[in-house]
């Protein structure tokens, strides 16, 4: 990791009580994000991506139990007083959700919401806040921004709402933006525009970003580092180019293989992953992926593989039988 670490998630575990028993949503996760860098967190639904981002933001459901540390900009967010946390969120730590209505208030105009956010965190008079709001809306690609200030969220399309949510998230120049499936609900052409927008604003502001997605395609061209999650754990973590060059964890490989390829002929059968992810209230003793893994041996069922580095310290994976690389084959 180059530069100074802005966020470091240390041994974070999140447990949720459910009628069916304890659900371990996040299982001993360690992650770091350097200032100005982009981390992609990839995984399928239910693997713990959103709970992890909520743990970072300290926005977990009340009944959730969190252990570990979330060091952000020199302080442990887990220990921070609620008042200080609230100040931090929206100021230096911002978030964009999959459904923009999660962060937008349906009964307030776009203008009111932007201006209030600006004035809550920065000392701006009305005129300056309004001017800044217009600039922000223009920056996120909203046509006729002045007129939009008077509009309500429901008067905008899904793509436009997401732009407004991004404008609000960016308004106080955060150091870290967490984007949780920011484009999953949007069409491909709009998705590309929103991802371009995030990348552009990130460069301009030297902001760090975590992009959470289920789409390996989204992280490939747009992140510095990727963490792949499965059943609450990080199972592989590497600089993006290294990961795509040689995936070591069989789950990562299978996930990529299962994507339909544009250059494949129609009716080519897809290498599907059999079965489905384990029930999170019934944790497995061994590797969570073992029931679906084509390389699994007895040890994979009885013992949990730790997340460990291989040839380079930056590339880690949790697997007893990692996919062989050329170097391994030569040795």
């Amino acid at each position: 990791m180059t530069g100074n670490t802005l966020l470091s998630v240390e041994d974070v575990t999140v447990d949720l009580p459910t009628p069916r028993g304890n659900l371990r949503a996040v299982d001993h996760v360690d992650l770091t994000v350097g200032a100005g860098r982009t981390l992609g967190i990839v995984g399928e639904s239910g693997c713990g991506k959103t709970m992890l981002s909520r743990a970072i933001l300290q926005l977990l459901p009340k009944k959730a139990k969190l252990s570990g540390r979330v060091m952000f900009d020199g302080q442990d967010l887990v220990q921070l007083a609620p008042e200080k946390l609230r100040k931090l969120r929206g100021r230096s730590l911002a978030v964009v959700f999959q459904d923009p209505m999660t962060s937008l208030n349906p009964v307030l105009t776009i203008g009111t919401q932007l201006i209030e956010t600006l004035q809550e965190h920065l000392e701006l008079d009305d005129a300056t806040a309004k001017k800044r709001s217009v600039e922000l809306l223009a920056a996120v690609g909203i046509p006729a921004p002045e007129q939009r200030l008077a509009q309500y969220p429901h008067q905008l399309s899904g793509g436009m709402r997401q732009r407004v949510a991004i404008a609000i998230a960016l308004s106080c120049e955060p150091k870290l933006l967490i984007a949780d499936e920011p484009t999953t609900a949007l069409d491909v052409t709009i998705q590309a525009q929103i991802l371009d927008l995030l990348a552009r604003e990130q460069r301009r502001r030297h902001m760090a970003m975590i992009i959470i997605t289920h789409d390996l395609g989204v992280v490939a061209g747009r992140t510095d580092e990727v963490a792949v999650m499965y059943a609450g754990r990080v199972v592989e973590r590497a600089p993006t180019p290294a990961l795509f060059k040689k995936m070591r964890m069989p789950y990562t490989e299978a996930l990529l293989a299962a994507l339909p390829k544009l250059d494949a002929a129609p009716h080519t059968p897809l290498p599907a992953i059999s079965g489905r992810p384990p029930d999170p209230t019934r944790p497995l003793q061994g590797c969570s992926f073992s029931p679906r893994c084509r390389y699994a041996v007895a040890r994979c069922q009885s013992e949990k593989p730790p997340l460990e580095a291989a040839e380079t310290s930056a590339h880690q994976f949790a697997c007893f039988h990692p996919i062989k690389t050329h170097a391994d084959a030569d040795a």
């Binding site: 998705q191 371009d196 789409d215 395609g217 490939a220 061209g221 795509f244 994507l259 544009l262």
Partner: peptide, 18 residues
């Protein structure tokens, strides 16, 4: 445009700034 907007799972394929 639709084809171009598909995110490709290959870091060497830079997303075209659409």
């Amino acid at each position: 445009l639709l084809i171009e907007a598909i995110p490709v799972p290959d870091p060497d394929v830079r997303p075209t700034e659409t």
